[in-house]
């Protein structure tokens, strides 16, 4: 205990935090790219053209049926043979993005399909073009519906980032490995790593929850006047 607080923490915590910062960077960038790609995958897979649909379906299937770590190793070590050289960091981003996109495309697809068919028809019957129906009615509702799931995926992603330490990205877990090889103090180091992961996940979950509440239309309505007028109506 004494050693933990008065030696390990002051000595190595800042270095671990540097690694954590990279983990956060990886997560945020992959989340952003993965969400965009996942969305277009979902729309593409729902599109009527079969020629476009099957390669996308196949991509999603392959990504979901192979381990992330294998995908990362392939991207980092095998793509250069095909002439595509990525730094460890961007190879990590690429792997995490593709993986996330495949899973999110399923989430988005389900959310899009679940949007009330009647509202789609109402939009069409007002004369909206298919693109307008999508942008104005279907996407906003599907996005809102997928938000909680998206939050869950972000937290999973934060932790999945530890896998990119295998391709030598200097993120949290790899920094921990470096510390341990220096000090042989694996117990204290891993406790600190666990604490940092916990804090990152915990804070993210709070932020996500806050965004969710803020984006839900029913929470943005003018609250106070509503029950009053409703009561009046009911009394009549």
């Amino acid at each position: 205990m004494y050693n933990f607080f008065f030696y390990a923490v002051p000595e190595h915590f800042p270095f671990l935090l540097q690694g954590a910062l990279v983990t956060v960077e990886l997560s945020l960038i992959s989340m952003l790219l993965g969400t965009l790609l996942g969305f277009f995958l979902a729309v593409g897979r729902l599109s009527a053209r079969r020629a476009l649909r099957w390669p996308l379906d196949a991509f999603v299937e392959v990504v979901r049926d192979t381990p992330l770590i294998v995908q990362l190793l392939l991207i980092y070590f095998s793509l250069p043979e095909a002439g595509i050289v990525l730094s460890a960091f961007w190879a990590g981003i690429a792997g995490l993005t593709l993986n996330l996109a495949a899973y999110l495309s399923e989430v988005f697809r389900a959310a899009i399909v679940a949007v009330d068919k009647g509202q789609r028809e109402a939009a069409i019957s007002l004369g909206m073009s298919p693109v307008a129906v999508y942008c104005r009615v279907i996407i906003p509702q599907a996005a809102l519906a997928s938000l909680p799931t998206l939050g869950g995926y972000f937290i999973a992603l934060l932790k999945d980032c530890s896998l990119v330490s295998f391709i030598s990205v200097n993120e949290l877990l790899r920094h921990a490995t470096i510390v341990i090889s220096d000090t042989f103090d694996s117990m204290d180091t891993y406790i600190m790593v666990a604490i940092i992961y916990f804090m990152m996940s915990f804070i993210s979950a709070r932020i996500i929850r806050y965004v969710e509440v803020w984006l839900t239309p029913s929470n943005r309505r003018a609250t106070l006047s509503v029950p009053l007028t409703m009561d009046k109506e009911g009394a009549r």
Partner: peptide, 13 residues
């Protein structure tokens, strides 16, 4: 425009 049996208002608006 059409008025539907089940209203079909845009629920997010």
């Amino acid at each position: 425009p059409m008025v539907f049996q089940h209203f079909n208002l845009f629920s997010h608006r």
